[in-house]
């Protein structure tokens, strides 16, 4: 009797949590959208002078990490703890690689400085805000990984995994729009 009520309660809480998280995404999307507007308002059809190969590499790295994130979520929903832990650690490593690629390499080797015109402003602010989200995502994933090691998640109850996965995919989604906007669109 009591287990049914608690399961129903869990489902209700799940629905509430999901809605809350999606509303947060909606809100955050407006911020990212605002930056996108700034990029096109200031630079219009002008392309940023960026290293194409590097851009493609970091994009693929983030995409692969998203794949492993999805894998981690599927694994835990099937109760495969080992597979879940392995996938999530791969995701975290790839996330760190992405950060290193953008902040460590791209920022240092760019052809322009932060304070050099609209190009510098737009590029550093867009990648900076995105990188900040990646960083928080990695922290979120580390927490989930640690709690996963403790066996906190089961096939039935693993909302934290779902939430961190959704957050990670949201970051990926932002990059899916930002990558062409920064690297591919417009004329040189």
């Amino acid at each position: 009797m009591s287990s049914i009520t608690s399961s129903a309660q869990y489902q209700k809480k799940l629905a509430i949590n999901r809605l809350g998280l999606w509303l947060f995404f909606a809100s955050d999307a407006f911020m990212f959208g605002g930056l996108l507007v700034a990029r096109f308002y200031l630079l219009g059809n002008r392309r940023l002078e960026l290293e194409q190969t590097l851009g493609l590499i970091v994009t693929v790295v983030l995409l692969v990490s998203s794949f492993f994130m999805n894998r981690a979520e599927v694994m835990i929903s099937k109760g495969n703890q080992k597979g879940f832990q392995r996938s999530i650690i791969v995701t975290i490593v790839l996330g760190i690689l992405f950060l290193a690629g953008v902040v460590g390499v791209e920022w240092q080797t760019a052809h322009f400085q932060v304070n050099e015109g609209a190009q510098g402003a737009v590029f550093y602010m867009m990648t900076g805000m995105h990188a900040f989200h990646v960083l928080t995502g990695i922290i979120f994933l580390l927490i989930v990984y640690r709690n996963g090691l403790k066996g906190k998640y089961t096939a039935e109850k693993h909302y934290a995994v779902e939430a961190s996965a959704n957050y990670w995919h949201f970051i990926d989604l932002v990059w899916i729009i930002y990558y062409p906007a920064l690297y591919l669109m417009g004329l040189i």
């Binding site: 200031l42 015109g117 609209a118 402003a121 737009v122 602010m125």
Partner: peptide, 17 residues
């Protein structure tokens, strides 16, 4: 803080944005 050129026209920005 960093002299980013968002809104100052002399640095490529646009105050209307």
């Amino acid at each position: 803080l960093l002299g980013m050129g968002f809104f100052t026209p002399s640095n490529g920005g646009n105050p209307i944005l």
